[in-house]
Amino acid sequence: MTQSLAYKAIMEKKQRKEAMQQHRAENNIFRVRNCVEDKFEYISMVEAFWKSIQDKDLDQKTKDFVWMVAYDAHWSGTHWLRPSMKPELQQRAVCSHCGVIEDLEHKM
């Protein structure tokens, strides 16, 4: 394998990962947008969402939380169901009260 082929393979893998993360974020923002529309009868724009998390009035912890929600980066729900996880850790994926997958939406 040449350095050029290795570099191309690394870059392709990185682009696939970024595309998957972007798709996940778009789905989460779409869900948030629908929720806002249902509760407040206000249709927000995706650009407004990204601009709002850069607002200087928000503290950094809030910005970080919103970013992690958008990118599904919190360790909850199906993150614990990865095959590499030990069985005792996989149990964290399921709500102990009702038995459904315990993601952030379920916790709220």
Rank of each mutant, 00 (worst) to 15 (best):
M1S: 05
M1P: 06
M1W: 05
Q3E: 13
Q3K: 11
Y7I: 01
Y7K: 14
K8L: 12
A9S: 13
E12G: 04
K14L: 05
Q15W: 03
Q15H: 06
Q15E: 15
Q15M: 11
R16E: 14
R16Q: 15
K17G: 01
Q21D: 14
R24M: 13
A25I: 09
E26S: 06
I29G: 04
F30D: 10
R33D: 04
E37P: 00
E37N: 03
E37W: 03
D38Y: 04
I43G: 01
V46C: 05
A48C: 09
S52L: 07
I53A: 08
Q60C: 02
Q60K: 11
K61I: 09
T62P: 00
F65H: 06
F65A: 11
W67G: 08
V69N: 06
A73M: 14
A73H: 10
H74W: 05
W75R: 07
L81I: 07
R82Q: 15
S84K: 02
P87E: 10
E88N: 12
L89R: 12
V94R: 02
C95K: 05
S96E: 12
C98G: 02
C98L: 00
G99I: 07
G99A: 09
G99P: 02
V100W: 06
V100P: 00
D103H: 03
D103Y: 00
D103I: 00
D103F: 01
L104Q: 12
L104R: 05
L104D: 10
L104I: 07
M108Y: 04
M108C: 07
